[in-house]
C-alpha cells in the first residue's frame, strides 16, 4: 500500500537509485534460503499482520507492542541511503520509515542500557531456511548496536520502500537500516528489542568472529579474510562491465558517525 511520507533531503544521497526490481529480487534473507532469489520466491508466505514486537531489558516501558502502536505517533520520512553489503556490492535504496532514536526514546531506556539488541522472527513453518539441516545460523537471527550508535540520527527503522509498504523479502513489516555498517547489521522483520548492559552476541559474530565483528562498520582498510573490501560493485551492474567503485570509510557517512569511534582501533574493533 502507498505510504504518507516526506523526503528528508539532508539524509538522502542523490546518487542513482537501484530499480525497485533489483532491490526486491536480489536479497540476503537466509530465513528463506541462501540464494539471492530465494527471499523473493519464498518470503511471500510470511504473515506480517498482525505483527508484535517484544520490548524488554533495561527500559521503563517493557511490553508487547503492535507495530502500529509503536509507530503511530511518528511521521514517516523517506531517506535515500547507500547500502553496502559485506559481499562487496552495494545499492542505493529509497527507504520510508522513522528514526530509530524516536522509537527507542519512547521506550525509555534507563541508565544501564548500553546496547540495543534485536531479533528477527523465528518461525520454521513460515521460513524454509530455518528448516535447513545444514544451516550454520543458530536461529533467531540476532543483531545489536551500541546505544550511541542506535541513537545516531542516521539509524532508521524502515517500513517502506519506494513509497510503498516494505515487501516481505526486504524485511517487512519493520527492519533496521544502519547505512554506515555492512548490510547484515540492518536486521529484518524485527520481533524483539532488548535494552542491555552487556554487549550482545550477534549472529555473524557467533558463526565466524574472525570474519564478522560486532561493529562491522564499512571500512576499505579492513579486508574480509576471504576477500578485499577496498572496492564494491554498485548494482545493478552491466553484463560485460562490472560497475566497480571505491568503497568509502563508513560508507560515506563519516561526517555523521566518525565521532562515535574516536580513539577506537578500528582494525581491532572491526
Amino acid at each position: 500500500a502507498p505510504l504518507d511520507y516526506q523526503l528528508a533531503p539532508e539524509f538522502s544521497t542523490n546518487e542513482k537509485k537501484a530499480p525497485y526490481q533489483a532491490i526486491t529480487t536480489y536479497n540476503n534473507f537466509y530465513e528463506f534460503g541462501t540464494n539471492k532469489g530465494d527471499p523473493a520466491r519464498y518470503a511471500g508466505g510470511m504473515s506480517v499482520e498482525p505483527w508484535t514486537i517484544e520490548v524488554d531489558g533495561e527500559c521503563g516501558k517493557p511490553g508487547t507492542y503492535s507495530v502500529e502502536d509503536l509507530l503511530r505517533p511518528s511521521q514517516y520520512e523517506e531517506r535515500i541511503y547507500r547500502l553496502r553489503c559485506v559481499e562487496a556490492w552495494s545499492m542505493v535504496i529509497p527507504w520510508v520509515g522513522v528514526p530509530l532514536a524516536e522509537i527507542l526514546k519512547r521506550l525509555e531506556p534507563n541508565s544501564k542500557a548500553k546496547y540495543v539488541y534485536f531479533e528477527t522472527l523465528k518461525d520454521p513453518e513460515q521460513m524454509p531456511g530455518q528448516r535447513s539441516f545444514f544451516s550454520v545460523i543458530d536461529w533467531p537471527y540476532r543483531e545489536g548496536l551500541r546505544m550511541d550508535e542506535a541513537m545516531n540520527e542516521l539509524s532508521f527503522l524502515a517500513v517502506g520502500l519506494y513509497g510503498k509498504t516494505l515487501p516481505n523479502q526486504n524485511g517487512a513489516p519493520i527492519r533496521l537500516v544502519v547505512p554506515w555498517k555492512y548490510g547484515f547489521k540492518s536486521i529484518k522483520s524485527i520481533v524483539r528489542i532488548r535494552f542491555m548492559e552487556q554487549q550482545p552476541k550477534t549472529s555473524w559474530e557467533m558463526i565466524a568472529p574472525e570474519e564478522y565483528g560486532f561493529y562491522s562498520n564499512v571500512n576499505p582498510e579492513v579486508d574480509h579474510p576471504r576477500w578485499s573490501q577496498k572496492r564494491e560493485r554498485r548494482l545493478p551492474s552491466g553484463v560485460l562491465q562490472p560497475n566497480w567503485i571505491d568503497t568509502v570509510k563508513f560508507n560515506g557517512y563519516a561526517d555523521q558517525v566518525a565521532h562515535l569511534y574516536k580513539g577506537m582501533d578500528l582494525q581491532r574493533y572491526f
Partner: peptide
C-alpha cells in the same frame, strides 16, 4: 540474471 549478472555468469 538479476542485478549482478557478472556474479551469476
Amino acid at each position: 540474471l538479476g542485478p549482478d549478472p557478472g556474479q551469476a555468469i
